[in-house]
Design a protein around this nucleic acid. Sequence first.
DNA 1: CGCCTTTGACCTGCGC
DNA 2: GCGCAGGTCAAAGGCG
Length: 528
Amino acid sequence: MENDDFLKSGHGGEERHAEMRKLDASHDDPHLDIIRSKLDSIKVEMEEAKEENRRLKSSLSRIKKEFEVLQTQYNQLTVQHENLNKFSTKGHHQDKNEDEEKERISERDELVLLSLGTRLKSPVPSVSVTNKEEKTKDFMDETGDEKNIDEHKRSGYQGLSLGFEYKDLSYPTEKFEIDHNQANKSLLVSNKTLIPSENSFGFKNDGDDHEDEEELLPQNLVKKARVSVRSRCETTTMNDGCQWRKYGQKIAKGNPCPRAYYRCTIAPSCPVRKQVQRCSEDMSILISTYEGTHNHPLPLSATAMASATSAAASMLLSGASSSSSAAAADLHGLNFSLSGNSNIPKPKSPFLQTSSSGHPTVTLDLTTSSSSQQPFLSTLNRFSAPPSNVSRSNSYPSTNLNFSNSTNTVMNWGGVGNRNEQYRAAYSNISTLQQSPYQHMIQTRIAGSSLDPFGRSSSYSPHPTQTNLDHVGIKSITHQVQYLPAETIKAITTNPNFQSALATALSSIMGTDVKMDNVTRNEAEKSP
DNA sequence: CGCCTTTGACCTGCGC
DNA sequence: GCGCAGGTCAAAGGCG
């Protein structure tokens, strides 16, 4: 590890020793005082270096310990899962319910599971094997392309992953219940909410093969949650690090600027869509609206936006309908908060008309200025109560999150352009990627999205049942789970293990800030 | 040649 | 049922 050399060298300690010896020998020097003061300052510097070395050592050992713990847990779970599979394949006519019960028990062995680094396979299945098979089958039916599935599965196992899985121990029946007797197709969401397996930086992980549940699950049959990002941007689209293909353009009512429709092209089956439109009131403001969750690994440069939007959408679904509750978490000094928005005034700007389509929409406002000297922390701490320019759709909950800082005159989330060559570069030499300041909002994913009772950025349910829920109001969902997130966030984020692992992961991510201004500039030049 | 954008046609949901 | 608006499709053409 590079750190080892660094630790051994002790910040050039040898050189400084030699320098000090030289200084000690020069007692007759007329500038003795100056030399002594210099000596003192060097000593202080050395102390600081030692202190830093100590800190690095301790964090290194902490990472090692956590890795060992996680590995142990993974092994245990793998063994347990194999045992369960043996039971079911032996054909001893075990009741299906018994299997599910056992699986649930094994899931509960771990409250919070953090996975750092490359994800191999999800250790904790969050749905039963039967469900998984069903979903895979459904997916095949839907796409008719087995190759896609393989690719899909493979892709799900790769990439940087920082996620945690949380199983609610409090209630034995952890699945959403759909009351089929309700003639008016209302969706009954049990209070006994399961927080499903969830990965990580902006894309659905993982080995559980429910990447495409987005298309299959009941909640997704209602209007999907959307995340609008308002930013000052000179280019036609905000560079968020993802790869998009334009598939349509429309002049929306009330805005002379056309609205462009994009879909994610990193993976053929990716359901994520994006709408881009300029604000008619301020043409310098670009409104990008994201819908859906990526079902593939993202370029590192794209994780910032994906994380932020996922977290925002999750916060919307989990807490937006709450009238007064506020969820807050303090992770190693990084504050998160989620405020209810019942008092948020109705929107006036044309931008807000986008949410009148009936989709629950959350707005990330990156346009207002901030005087903060620390853009990163400023950004993080701005995950807070909405400002006056808050948005809210007429019929669905809407939340406004302000990530603005003083440096965002021209937005560039990814630093990587939308050309193939640049994406290839992004994958092949990830260490040279520029991470935008907003990369650090990755943690918002942790605060919000991972805690989402529905998982995923927009919606999720472990229940595979497909029901015609075209007219089911999403309000019925958010209403019933609205009081969960605050407690859940608190419970999870105050877990010392979680905090230390999270802090380590974040610091390792933040520490990889590398400039790639050339790419950014080139991309900006390319755009009209 | 493959991928992308453009753009008119078409589909769908919603309000009246 | 009709009209409107949002959203999507797909053919055509451009670009590297």
